[in-house]
Simulated assay, not measured.
Amino acid sequence: MFTLHALRHSAVRPTVPQWTSSRNFWGWVNMMFNRVDEKRLKLVGPDRLCAEWLLRNGAKVKFLNASHVQEHYNLLPDESVRTLVEELDGTESGIMHIGFDHLKGLKHLRKIKLHKCVYLQDQALAKLILVADTLEDLEVSSCKNISDHGLLCLKDLKKLKHLVTYELPYVKNLSDVEKQLKQALPECKMNLRP
């Protein structure tokens, strides 16, 4: 199967019509790779579909009770094997807020790392409410489109035990954000840096 990573780095690029820019084309491709396929969801369940979404977009996933991190779409276990997503690492991936609907129905996701996610926006952090009952560890770093508003969406993640943020240039009032988050999440250890 051709992954987005392979498509981006292949020598053969599809011809882009003159009326659109290459950037818009790749944004459209990323959007399509992030949409939830409702038919597939019914067939394989939320954990498998979430793993497919992550791997298709260049992210990594760790399954519950697995000793290794899954990095390659083509090496996913057979669909008949029940997998439960425990951790996701979106480092330098093409995941977008549209794709965060894949988190719905996950019951074991406890750790998320979002580092250098160029398509990530505040809406994605708002959708983390879908895993508020399990999420304990979160890193949001070097994501250039995240603002104060996005970080304040994390106030509803009552199970959060660790939060790390850094290199978020659109967060303008980090001290106020930190104050509000500490008030909402008194049990969470935070390391919020500019």
Results as ranks from 00 to 15, higher is better:
132 A>S: 12
113 K>L: 15
135 L>G: 04
179 K>V: 06
37 D>C: 04
6 A>Y: 08
130 L>R: 05
10 S>M: 08
159 K>V: 02
180 Q>W: 12
166 Y>W: 15
171 V>E: 13
153 C>D: 11
192 L>C: 09
72 H>S: 12
62 K>Y: 05
3 T>D: 06
113 K>G: 04
83 T>P: 01
179 K>A: 14
157 L>S: 00
134 T>F: 11
129 I>K: 12
99 G>T: 08
9 H>D: 08
56 R>H: 05
32 M>C: 08
61 V>F: 09
16 V>C: 10
17 P>M: 12
35 R>Q: 15
98 I>V: 10
138 L>M: 11
135 L>V: 10
76 L>W: 02
18 Q>G: 04
193 R>W: 15
58 G>F: 04
25 F>T: 07
125 L>F: 12
187 E>G: 00
86 E>V: 05
3 T>R: 04
109 L>H: 13
151 L>T: 11
20 T>E: 08
142 S>P: 00
119 Y>S: 14
162 H>Y: 13
18 Q>E: 15
53 W>Y: 08
78 D>E: 15
134 T>C: 12
57 N>Q: 04
176 D>T: 09
39 K>I: 14
179 K>T: 11
59 A>Y: 01
130 L>T: 01
38 E>C: 03
122 D>M: 09
109 L>E: 14
70 Q>A: 10
141 S>H: 04
152 L>G: 01
81 V>H: 12
4 L>D: 02
133 D>R: 03
81 V>T: 15
34 N>E: 03
145 N>E: 07
81 V>S: 10
27 G>F: 11
58 G>W: 06
129 I>S: 06
4 L>Q: 03
45 G>W: 07
110 R>W: 13
117 C>F: 09
54 L>Q: 07
121 Q>F: 13
59 A>H: 02
116 K>L: 13
108 H>D: 07
147 S>W: 11
49 L>C: 07
119 Y>F: 14
129 I>C: 04
165 T>I: 07
11 A>K: 10
72 H>A: 10
141 S>T: 12
126 A>P: 00
186 P>G: 03
144 K>W: 12
126 A>W: 08
171 V>M: 12
37 D>E: 06
172 K>T: 15
47 D>F: 12
156 D>M: 14
91 T>Q: 12
120 L>I: 15
75 L>Y: 13
27 G>E: 14
121 Q>L: 13
100 F>G: 04
55 L>F: 03
119 Y>E: 15
86 E>P: 02
115 H>C: 10
22 S>K: 05
188 C>W: 08
95 I>Y: 05
9 H>F: 13
100 F>D: 06
190 M>C: 00
12 V>L: 06
91 T>R: 12
167 E>N: 02
112 I>Y: 01
45 G>C: 05
86 E>C: 05
128 L>S: 04
72 H>P: 00
119 Y>T: 07
35 R>A: 13
1 M>C: 07
156 D>A: 15
173 N>I: 07
118 V>L: 05
144 K>A: 00
47 D>C: 14
106 L>T: 02
